[in-house]
């Protein structure tokens, strides 16, 4: 492989690999803004990935797989919200425990998940939607257009999240809960409900982030996912 190709591949991969971080990060914003630190996003992504793979193996349908991943992420976020908001447990502690749990359970279920297959099947990937002409543009084509559709979604989602947080009443409430919960309570809004909402949105988006490009394939052993998403969960928290 000659140098230009390596650079091309590298650039395309950077864009592809940034997508899960952006998808999860856009949701992570919400939990951060309600004042709940969600370190468990990584665990939710891990479990969401497994859920997506399991669902797509069972049904072969991408949409169902993605929804299922979001469901699992949302459920785990519900646990996190219960622990941190209702039980007032330490947020870092709860998140770390969720990560630990996710790591164990995905490891444990990895073998049974593929036990029915002789070879590890590849789960379906998101389609590439860009027209042929665009994809064959020199240089820009492979980097920008030869990407699964969810990568594009990833680039749009942060703007949607920003619009939501800064231009809607609901977004204002979310921000207010983090900055000044007493004011929110005085205004007659439920602090608990808003916090739950924020955390659950982060879980949903974690699920949907990991159903994204490059993650819909047989899970690899723990450590790479751990390293990658630990960083993701943290960075997107900011």
């Amino acid at each position: 492989m000659d140098l230009p190709n390596i650079v091309l591949d590298w650039l395309a991969a950077s864009i592809r690999l940034s997508a899960p971080l952006m998808l999860a990060g856009a949701g992570g914003l919400f939990t951060e803004r309600t004042g709940v630190f969600n370190i468990g996003i990584e665990g939710m992504m891990l479990c969401g990935t497994m859920a997506a793979v399991a669902a797509s193996l069972a049904t072969g349908n991408l949409l169902i797989a993605t929804l299922f991943a979001m469901l699992v992420g949302g459920l785990m976020a519900l646990v996190h919200a219960y622990l941190t908001v209702t039980r007032r447990a330490d947020q870092i502690v709860a998140g770390a425990a969720i990560n630990l749990f996710a790591l164990g359970i995905t490891n444990l279920l990895n073998t049974p998940l593929y036990s029915a297959y002789e070879y590890r099947p590849r789960a379906p990937l998101f389609p590439v939607l860009a027209p042929e002409a665009l994809r064959e543009l020199p240089f820009i084509g492979p980097i920008l257009f030869d990407q699964p559709v969810i990568v594009w979604a990833a680039f749009i989602l942060p703007f949607v999240a920003a619009w939501f947080l800064y231009r809607t009443t609901w977004g204002l409430n979310i921000r207010a809960v983090g900055d000044h919960p007493h004011a929110v309570a005085t205004a007659g809004l439920s602090v608990f409900r808003l916090k739950y909402a924020g955390v659950i949105v982060s879980g949903l988006s974690a699920g949907w982030g990991c159903a994204g490009p490059g993650r819909l394939r047989p899970l690899r052993p723990q450590h790479d996912g751990r390293a990658r998403f630990r960083g993701a969960g943290c960075v997107c928290g900011r």
Partner: peptide
């Protein structure tokens, strides 16, 4: 990995 799961559950239940 069941050991990990038990550990995590123990921590989760302790904080719950």
């Amino acid at each position: 990995p069941i050991a990990q799961v038990i550990q995590a559950l123990a921590v989760l239940f302790v904080i719950a």
